[in-house]
Simulated assay, not measured.
Amino acid sequence: MATATPDLVFRPATEGDVPALVELVESAYRGEASRTGWTTEADLLDGQRTDHESVAETLARPDTLILLAERAATGELLACCTVERRGAGAYFGMFSVRPTQQGGGVGRAVLAEAERHVREEWGAASLEMTVIVQRADLIAWYERRGFRRTGELSPFPYGDERFGLPKRPDLAFETLVKAL
């Protein structure tokens, strides 16, 4: 685990970043590589977390930004997230930190930059996300950063392999929200 936040630079993703984004997201959530960090979903899901087509579609959507965090000295991609305008608020998703960098402040820095962007650039009053309810450690991490659980649940898309292959029958998402 990293012990200090490296100097980061933030920038919007471009089409040329899609392959690196897919690799980053997959490494953070699925397979053995993801077990290096603490955000793995490998015990809940097999299969893919995302693919080139869905990342490219996200990148092309209006009112959506894929934010990259790179090591300032080398340009190495360390983390990413997506923010999307939704009325007076914004949605936060596809949050991924390279497993070897988890626990060292990179995630906190990316979340803070995403919050700053949607608040200052878009005038968003809140930031919303969905998290698999079985991810108690991750939900607790977000709660420590000011998000609150809403109790609003939505079903996991069972049968749609684009979202992975569930290892259990009770997966669901809960909406979390933070006032900005």
Rank of each mutant, 00 (worst) to 15 (best):
P6Q: 02
V9G: 14
V9A: 11
R11V: 08
R11E: 03
P12L: 02
P12R: 01
P12H: 01
A13F: 02
A13V: 07
T14F: 09
G16A: 12
D17A: 07
D17Y: 01
V18H: 03
P19K: 02
A20N: 15
L21N: 12
L21A: 10
V22R: 04
V22Q: 05
E23L: 12
E23W: 01
L24E: 08
L24N: 11
L24W: 00
E26L: 00
E26R: 02
E26Y: 01
S27E: 11
R30M: 04
G31N: 03
G31F: 00
G31I: 04
E32K: 13
E32G: 14
A33W: 09
A33E: 13
S34D: 00
S34E: 04
S34V: 00
R35C: 07
G37D: 03
T39H: 04
T39P: 09
T40C: 03
E41R: 10
E41G: 08
E41D: 13
D43S: 14
L44A: 08
L44M: 11
L44K: 10
L45I: 06
Q48S: 15
Q48C: 15
R49T: 07
T50C: 03
T50A: 00
T50I: 02
E53S: 11
E53Q: 12
S54C: 08
V55H: 03
V55D: 03
A56V: 00
A56S: 12
A56Y: 00
